[in-house]
Computed example of a mutant assay.
Amino acid sequence: MNPFLRWALYLVVGFFIFSILSVAVHRFVPVPVTILMLQRLAEGEGLDHRWVSAGDISPHLKAAVVAAEDAKFCTHSGFDFEAIEKAQTYNATHRKKRGASTISQQTAKNVFLWPSRSWVRKGFEVYYTGLIEVMWPKDRILEVYLNSVEWGPGVYGAESASRYWFGKSAKDLTRAEAARLAAILPSPRKWKAAKSGKYVQKRSGKIQAAARTFQNGGIDLCAAD
């Protein structure tokens, strides 16, 4: 075999082994740091990241985040194809683009990949999303997402976000506070969960109403308990 092809084969096989092992490990082991955290740290921001178990995160926050970010989280297999189709239709005629990433996709991106909008990164995101959907239960995906997502300047994860914005633990969040945190996820470095502007207040009100539907049993929220 050509030496170049041999090394290329080694790299491909090595990547598949590494990726599967890393996903398997984080099925049980907390994610200590992500590439985005290190990038922000290099840019001069702090790093406040405190991992807590799913049982130490308020059910209100779980419901609010699912309601805001991915209402079909419990029923899809990693991708919401209806949302993708709607986003493509919208983006074809609008300058400001609309995303359609599920919580599973965002978890794959946050934990295993680098922040960018390239097609290469998107391809890896699809691959890792498939892996975690196969290897992790839904409650683990949500637990990792809530512990890794950016929630403010240098603030990552539900526990740090709760303390940063409201001065309390994530397990003690009220419905209103949880909705405020969910409301700022699209732009956590621009919007404020505490002392919010009118847009965040209005958005959080809608999220709180939708989250009640999940918690009241209107929709089977697989990862709320």
Rank of each mutant, 00 (worst) to 15 (best):
K97F: 05
D139H: 14
F124K: 13
Y145E: 11
A179R: 06
T174V: 09
A182P: 00
G154Q: 14
V111A: 04
V134S: 12
R180C: 03
S162E: 01
K171S: 15
V111S: 04
E177Y: 07
S116L: 00
G197A: 12
R189Q: 09
T102W: 04
S101V: 09
P186I: 00
D139E: 15
W191V: 01
S196P: 13
S104I: 11
A92K: 13
P188M: 11
I103S: 01
A176M: 05
G99D: 02
A178F: 08
E125T: 08
Q106E: 07
V144K: 03
K171D: 10
S118Y: 01
K97I: 07
V155T: 02
L142N: 06
Y128C: 02
K192D: 08
Y90S: 01
R95P: 03
A193F: 12
K96V: 08
Y156R: 03
N110C: 07
P188C: 05
Y145N: 08
P153K: 09
V134Q: 10
A108L: 06
F124L: 15
T102Q: 05
V126C: 04
G167W: 08
P186T: 02
N91F: 08
R140D: 06
R175H: 13
I141N: 06
P137L: 09
W136R: 12
A179Y: 03
S162Q: 11
E159Q: 14
S101D: 10
A158R: 14
V126Q: 06
E125H: 08
E125C: 09
P137A: 11
Y145S: 02
A183P: 00
T89C: 10
S101T: 09
S162G: 06
T107S: 13
V144W: 14
R163H: 11
E150S: 03
W119V: 11
W136T: 10
A158Y: 14
I103T: 05
Y145I: 01
Y128G: 04
G197V: 07
R180N: 11
Y145K: 11
S101H: 01
T89V: 15
R98N: 00
P153Q: 00
A108M: 05
K97T: 12
A108P: 13
S148N: 02
L142K: 09
K122V: 08
K171I: 10
E150I: 03
W136G: 06
L185Y: 00
K195W: 09
Y127A: 09
R98S: 04
R121G: 14
S148M: 14
T129H: 15
E133I: 02
L181Y: 01
E150D: 04
W119N: 09
L131D: 11
K168I: 12
S118T: 14
K109H: 07
G157E: 13
K122R: 12
T129G: 13
W191L: 07
A182I: 12
I132T: 08
S187K: 15
H94G: 11
P153C: 06
F112Q: 00
G99P: 03
Q106S: 11
R189N: 09
K190G: 04
I132N: 10
V126N: 07
G99E: 02
N91W: 11
I184M: 06
Y164K: 02
I184Q: 00
E133L: 02
W136Q: 13
R163D: 10
R95L: 03
N147L: 04
L181F: 01
T102E: 05
S116V: 01
Y90R: 10
I132H: 10
S116K: 03
Y90T: 06
E150H: 02
L181V: 02
K195N: 15
S148W: 03
W165K: 04
A179F: 06
